[in-house]
């Protein structure tokens, strides 16, 4: 299962022109600010918006081909979509919400309800099937929305800011669960978000979109290490280091240990923002810091700062001021020490 799409659509002053490809089981994050055309893209892929010009191919089936006059209406596309504010039908029970798509596609009531029940158990909401959506918490509602989107085994899963309506704490757990479900999902996924952490944690490829056009594409690591515009640099400088936490230490999958301020256990991401990485020519003196010897492999100026790409036991990205960069006489190949305070390292469950 795969998605290939070329979308051209004009929405008021915004001209959206985006090309994308997603492989079997792939997760593409479309990252960008509000009003960049991300949601417009999703609406075209879903068939809710007729594009000015587009070709959308899913598993070799043409969903949209404006030149050939083909437009598959939304309800005939085998897809699942999760909306920012879940949009569960308030007049139906949770089970009926999840079973809705199956019922529309001709599955008998008993079978549809059984499948809905199974999916509710998979998203950890066993026993809540008789509730109304109004009686659910935000995190529960978003889990139901995910179950509703996935229950029909769609070829394409569209996620429109699925975590942004949740409070910070809930977002962490739902993000971790979403990551697990996306890992098990065989179809292609397109995730629209303005949160770089979502993109980094959930996607295997990132498309950064600004004013309706792609400004950068690549793997999450690629994009954060080689930002091509100031905008991308500001947005996605985050280094996301996978590892296993125990207490206030995270043992990284790639080797090395990171000290963190918050206690955690199990598989996590340790996230380091580039402005919290300090560079030193000699090893800084004792403090509860993470200090690693690294090699400067690349440097890109962005305004008043220089983004430094660092390689070593712990790969990092650092932003230093242009003045400091010049003062230290840094050049690619230079051996330096990178230091990060434990309190500056965020920990996310994965």
């Amino acid at each position: 299962m795969s998605l290939a799409a070329e979308v051209r659509v004009r929405r008021g002053p915004l001209a959206v022109a985006l090309d994308l490809e997603v492989d079997d089981g792939g997760v593409l994050a479309v990252l960008g600010p509000n009003g960049a055309g991300k949601s417009t893209l999703l609406r075209v892929l879903a068939g809710l918006l007729e594009p000015d010009d587009a070709r959308v191919l899913v598993d070799g089936v043409v969903w949209d081909d404006v030149a050939a006059g083909v437009h598959l209406p939304a309800h005939r596309r085998p897809l699942g979509m999760v909306f920012q504010d879940h949009l569960l039908f308030p007049h139906l029970s949770v089970t009926e919400n999840v079973a809705f798509g199956l019922r529309c596609r001709g599955v008998r009531r008993a079978a549809a309800r059984a499948a809905a029940g199974e999916w509710l158990a998979r998203v950890g909401l066993d026993g809540l099937g008789d509730r109304r959506p109004g009686a659910l918490s935000g995190g529960q509602a978003q889990r139901v929305a995910l179950a509703r989107a996935l229950v029909g085994a769609p070829a394409l899963l569209l996620l429109d800011e699925p975590l942004s309506a949740l409070d910070a704490r809930t977002r962490l757990t739902v993000r971790a669960e979403l990551r697990r479900h996306l890992g098990e999902f065989a179809g292609s996924t397109v995730l629209v978000t303005h949160d770089p952490v979502d993109a980094m944690a959930l996607a295997d490829r990132v498309l950064v979109v600004e004013d309706g056009a792609v400004v950068q594409a690549g793997t999450p690591a690629d994009v954060s290490r080689h930002p091509r515009t100031d905008y991308v640099a500001r947005l996605v400088g985050l280094s996301l280091l996978p590892g296993v936490a125990s207490g206030r230490r995270v043992r990284l999958d790639g080797g090395g240990v990171v000290a963190v301020a918050e206690e955690a256990d199990g598989p996590v991401f340790a996230a380091v923002r580039p402005e919290s990485v300090a560079l030193f020519l000699s090893r800084p003196d004792g403090s509860p810091r993470n200090v690693w010897p690294v090699r400067l492999t690349g440097a890109t100026p962005h305004g008043a700062t220089v983004r430094c790409e660092l390689d070593g036991e712990v790969p990092l990205v650092a932003d230093v001021t242009a003045a400091a960069f010049a003062e230290m006489g840094l050049a690619p190949g230079a051996r330096v020490w990178a230091a990060v305070k434990a309190s500056e390292v965020a920990v996310y469950t994965r």
Binding site: L48, P73, A74, H75, R76, L92, G101, C104
Partner: peptide, 21 residues
């Protein structure tokens, strides 16, 4: 829109979503 992405045509959407709402 949500109903359409779940496979409901406009008539089904009217009957099962719009009308109850």
């Amino acid at each position: 829109d949500a109903a359409a992405t779940l496979g409901a045509d406009r008539w089904t959407t009217f009957r099962r979503v719009t009308l109850p709402l």
